[in-house]
């Protein structure tokens, strides 16, 4: 019965289309105490860089209307720690592993990709929203020429299917999507967070120590859905859709907009069983409506 939910993304067979969004689920260890990780289509781990990154000062979290802001700053203990400590843990589970990678320079991106090339990892996800220190701190992901160049360079070192994760903070998401695909992306995932801000009027200062942070959660879903829809129509590679998904209905909207699979992030904080409930909900919807395969509804919105 599970078969009808099977979703193949760039040759990687997921038992269902529900994935965790990078940075919201660690490497699965903590949520694995509450839910059975074997139920998930895939786990996307927190961004991994070649050297450990310390991250930003606290407060790093602010609740907002319909969502939240985070300014974690890609804190992570580095790729060696990931390989030694997290990868063996995840491998004990019957789920696919997607490793989100980050870097401040092109060389750093290439180094992580190369280090992971021989590892037992199912897919890499290149986070191109990282500040690019070589070009004045602007994210790699905002200029189509830079995107294409970065993806092509990293592609050379990658041993697995490569997903490129797009930032929504661009003038034309379709243009960036096409640039990533022509650079060699096998999959696109979107969207990353939108930059936002919250001010504590009593203290008269921003809640986040970094002043601004990434906005995620239900509030961004209409934007994310529109972008996934546009990108699915602009390129031929599979798309992992995300941004505010909290229920199976939300997930189905993304699939109908054309997403091959979906990722669930902020919803895990509100309900640690969100992923499992979404999987059950999709299954129920398929049974009720006699849908034999998700392909029957995928991208039906024209």
């Amino acid at each position: 019965m599970d078969d009808r939910m099977e979703t193949v993304v760039a040759g990687v067979a997921l038992k269902n289309p529900v994935i965790t969004a990078s940075g919201t689920f660690g490497a699965g260890r903590e949520y694995g105490e509450l839910i059975d990780l074997d139920r998930l289509g895939a786990v996307t781990v927190k961004g991994v860089s070649c050297e450990p990154w310390k991250g930003n000062p606290a407060p790093r979290i602010a609740e907002t209307q319909s969502g939240m802001l985070n300014s974690i700053g890609l804190q992570n203990p580095g790729v060696e720690h990931f390989i030694e400590y997290d990868l063996p843990f995840l491998r004990q589970h019957d789920t696919k592993i997607i490793v989100n990678i980050c870097g401040h320079t092109l060389a750093q991106y290439c180094a992580v990709a190369e280090r992971l090339a021989d590892c037992d990892v199912d897919m890499l996800e290149l986070n191109i929203s990282c500040p690019n220190v070589e070009e004045g701190g602007l994210a790699f992901g905002t200029d189509p020429h830079v995107v294409e160049r970065v993806v092509r360079a990293v592609r050379h070192y990658v041993g697995q299917p490569l997903a490129v994760k797009l930032s929504p903070e661009v003038a034309d998401i379709k243009e960036i999507a096409r640039a990533a695909v022509s650079g060699g992306a096998d999959v696109l995932s979107l969207i990353n967070t939108l930059r936002g801000m919250k001010i504590d009027i009593h203290r008269r200062r921003p809640v986040l120590a970094s002043k601004t942070g990434g906005y995620s959660g239900p509030g961004i879903m209409p934007v994310a859905l529109r972008m996934v829809y546009e990108v699915c129509r602009a390129v031929d590679v599979p798309v992992i859709g995300m941004g505010g998904i909290a229920t199976f209905e939300d997930a189905l909207e993304f699939i109908m907009a054309g997403a091959a699979a979906v990722a669930v992030g902020t919803a895990n904080f509100h309900n640690p069983y969100a992923t499992v409930e979404i999987i059950e909900g999709i299954r129920g919807y398929m049974e009720e409506n006699n849908i034999a395969s998700l392909d029957r509804i995928r991208g039906i919105i024209d």
Partner: peptide
């Protein structure tokens, strides 16, 4: 105390600067 999202250690939201004895540098 620190502001939290997941509450279980997955999101790294609730950072506090700690320097363990014998370690050269602090960490969150």
């Amino acid at each position: 105390e620190e502001r939290m999202a997941c509450g279980i250690g997955a999101c790294l939201g609730c950072a506090v600067k700690i320097q363990k004895p014998g370690e050269k540098d602090w960490q969150y």
